[in-house]
Amino acid sequence: MFLIECPWCGPRDETEFSYGGEAHIARPVGGGHDMTNAEWGHYVFHRTNPKGLHRERWVHSHGCRRWFNVVRDTVSHEFLLIYKPGEKPDLPALPKSPEPPDGPGR
C-alpha cells in the first residue's frame, strides 16, 4: 500500500486516493473534429503504458479531492516527483530501474 504525498495535504495512505490514468493527454483543441478516426482513437484509447517512469494522475478523493500529477516508476512503485496540474517538470535522471525479482507465483 503506497504512501502518497498529496501536494496539499502531505503524506497519506493510498486508500485515500484514486488513480487517474496517464497524465498530460490533452483533449484535442476544438474537440478533435478535424482529426482522422485513427488520431481520435489514439487520443481516447492508446496509452504509452511504459515499463519504468510514468507520468500519471492521482486524486485525493477521500481528502481534499484535488488532482495532481506524479512521476512513478511502474516497476519499483517509487513516486519520484509529485507536482500540481499545469506543471510539468523534467523527468528525473535515474539509473535504469531494476527488474523485479521474478516471483514464484501460484
Partner: peptide
C-alpha cells in the same frame, strides 16, 4: 462528481 472535478481541475482549470 468525480467526472466533473476531473475535467474542471485537469483540463479546464
Amino acid at each position: 462528481l468525480g467526472w466533473l472535478e476531473e475535467w474542471l481541475q485537469t483540463e479546464w482549470p
